[in-house]
Simulated assay, not measured.
Amino acid sequence: MLDRTTVTFAREDSLVTARIDGPRLPVPAPPPYKVGWVPRISAALESRGLSCGLEQGISETFILAPLPDGRNLLITPPQEPAEEQPPGAWLAMALRESDAGCEMWWDSETTGPDHAHLGIGPLLAAVDRRLDGLGVVPRPDPRPVLNEAGAHPSLYRAGFVPVELPTGRFHRLPLGMTDHDEQRGAVTRAIGSLRFEGFEVQCPPELLTEDPRAHHATRARDFGVDHLAAFVSDHARHTRDVVAALDEIASPLDGTLAQAVAALHAAADWWQHLGGPDAERHLYRLHLMATEIDRRTVEVRTLRGELADRHTAKPPGPRAGAPAPPGRDSSRAQAARATSPSARHTPSTGTPPAAQPPASQTSPRPRR
């Protein structure tokens, strides 16, 4: 058992991946509204990637789920005579529509081989063993990894793309990033940020680089949030540049949109304590706006991942964003600065201002 959250980097076929593991939090109690055997068994099967349908039997409903070998899994309480069966008796069988026979997976009826083990728990354990034998994806651990969310921004800003699968989440570098030197630079940036935040890291040496430029801040961060539009319009020459700009606003936890969502929720809570006329209506509107921004932020992250996978330079051409004449800004850049009275003027040509080195840390970060 790991004593703190660890991020493991590896090359898996053509992908460079980062997987998070660590101490597990206690399994939360099931929500009170999930009652009855149908939602409980259906949720257990769907968590392994099976789709469930309901059919009406002689006296009881039964669940029908297609299996990868072409058969169907049928789970039901005893049908006839149900009154003669003990509570907690179940039948589970795999059958094929073109075959009159079936393979019994579980039978805890009075005369069945599993009659001594009543209840849904033993039934699901037996079904899981059968599904394992068929190669069905395992059920993901429902317990969240301790501080898993804290590692996401470091991976996100280094250029990794999150991937959601039935077996869990992992991160990978963009599909179009095939240059090994560039991959090593991204992994090195991610590891530097993760270690600074106090995470444990495991990585093979061949995925690292000693090039000091790998630790430099992105050009989008050099420009600052109030100049991102000008950066994208006048200076972005590669999809990685636009991705870096989107990271500044949509990065989990520390992106400007995530901070705006947290601020709106906090303002609503503050208003609730304040009370007064129309307080409920106003705090409801604040929570609603925060929820909508959060939903849109998720869409931005999805599009950012698709753009990152393209990983290509901006096509040349007269409309490909040629630099504006010296001393003049694009209309987008002018509009972007017009919204911020305190924004500094950044020429549309030349190099961005140098990033300031981070302040030295006099004390280590707490272990996570």
Rank of each mutant, 00 (worst) to 15 (best):
A267N: 06
P140I: 04
A279Y: 11
I58N: 10
T312Q: 11
G317V: 02
T167N: 10
G101A: 15
S330K: 03
I75V: 14
A322S: 09
A336T: 04
C102P: 00
H265L: 14
R281G: 08
P39T: 10
D211I: 10
A244L: 00
A125T: 11
A217Y: 07
T111K: 13
R48V: 04
P122W: 03
D114F: 06
H216S: 13
S14Q: 14
V232C: 03
E200R: 15
D309Q: 03
F199K: 05
R219Q: 10
P142D: 06
R189G: 05
A65Y: 01
A267T: 02
A100M: 11
G112T: 03
D309T: 08
D226A: 13
P325A: 11
D21A: 14
D181M: 12
S360G: 13
G255F: 00
L286R: 06
I249L: 08
G57T: 07
D141M: 04
R310T: 07
R11Q: 14
V163R: 09
R195M: 13
H265D: 15
A279K: 05
S51L: 09
P318E: 12
P358F: 10
F199Q: 05
E248I: 01
L274A: 15
D211V: 08
L131G: 06
L123R: 03
E210H: 11
H215W: 07
R19M: 09
A333G: 02
R129H: 13
T8S: 13
G185N: 08
L45H: 05
G57E: 07
P366F: 13
C52A: 09
L257W: 01
P39I: 10
G49L: 06
E148A: 15
R281L: 11
A290I: 01
E46C: 07
W90D: 00
V27M: 08
L74S: 11
A217G: 10
D179P: 04
S251A: 15
G305C: 04
W271T: 13
E46D: 05
P277T: 11
A89K: 02
L124P: 04
A94P: 00
M93K: 14
G350V: 05
N147A: 14
L208E: 05
S42F: 00
H227D: 12
A324R: 14
L303V: 11
D3R: 13
L208A: 05
N72C: 09
A245R: 00
E206K: 06
A263M: 06
A244T: 03
P358E: 12
L253T: 07
L303K: 08
G185S: 13
R368L: 15
A94D: 06
P205Y: 00
S51Y: 00
V16C: 08
G255T: 00
L91R: 12
E46H: 06
A338M: 08
V187M: 04
E55L: 13
P358G: 13
R296P: 01
R328W: 12
E182W: 07
A335I: 03
P315M: 01
G321M: 02
I63C: 03
E83P: 00
E12Y: 07
F9K: 01
S108E: 00
G70K: 08
R304A: 03
S331C: 08
A308V: 02
F170I: 09
E60Y: 09
G112I: 02
L264A: 03
Q361F: 07
H238S: 00
R71T: 07
S348G: 13
P153H: 01
T256A: 03
Q79P: 01
C203F: 06
